[in-house]
């Protein structure tokens, strides 16, 4: 298990948080998270690993699927975060080509405290503002989006987006998704977003 030493807990996490916050406040905007050399397991996109390093600590729990146990072990070693099953975890790290089983179990919070819903970090192959071959077309609207934004997503199972939409149907209950690609781009889908895809 790799213990990250190049990652600066104070300044890298601050800078990355600002980028994640910018993406969360402006869904449809593609930012990049890539200025630190880290050594995450091959099962996870480096940008997803940076999201975890920026936001996780011993106060929250994380989940990764059974075929990517190295990811969970990586976060436990580097952030002291706890492991929990999908139904209880605060952060779920999923692959874009996975089935929606784990996502369907994720916490959505309660009406009095909807902020207890989970963050879902999903690895895809490519995020792009320009059309790319065999990509899902994701149209985003809602808070943070002036009018409508279109993003092309390659390597994402449409079932996952359908599951997110089902989860967020009873807004303010829901999950907040962060998509990362293999070129370190990130895109956020807060639960307030009214997106469609096809």
């Amino acid at each position: 298990m790799v213990r990250e030493t190049a990652y600066d807990e104070v300044f890298d996490s601050q800078r990355h948080f600002r980028i994640i916050m910018d993406s969360m406040a402006r869904p449809g905007k593609l930012n990049r998270l890539h200025d630190v050399v880290i050594h995450p397991p091959p099962e996870i996109n480096p940008a997803s690993a940076l999201v975890g390093l920026a936001l996780l600590n011993a106060d929250v729990s994380c989940f990764s699927p059974a075929d990517a146990e190295a990811v969970a072990a990586y976060f436990v070693a580097n952030t002291a975060s706890r492991l929990q099953p999908a139904a209880e975890a605060d952060f779920l790290f999923l692959r874009g080509d996975a089935a929606s089983g784990a996502l369907a179990q994720a916490k959505t919070g309660t009406l009095a405290y909807p902020d207890t819903g989970a963050f879902v970090v999903i690895d895809v192959v490519q995020l792009s503002k320009q059309p790319v071959a065999d990509a899902l077309v994701l149209r985003l609207a809602g808070p943070g989006v002036p009018g409508e934004e279109t993003v092309f997503v390659r390597g994402l199972n449409a079932d996952l987006l359908a599951a997110i939409r089902d989860k967020n149907a009873e807004y303010p209950l829901g999950v907040d998704a962060i998509l990362t690609d293999q070129e370190d781009r990130i895109l956020c889908l807060p639960r307030s977003n009214r997106f469609s895809f096809g």
Binding site: I20, M24, D115, P172, D176, R191
Partner: peptide, 10 residues
């Protein structure tokens, strides 16, 4: 920071 993200999401 996590709470701020949740605040932005809702």
């Amino acid at each position: 920071r996590r709470k701020l993200l949740k605040a932005i999401c809702i």
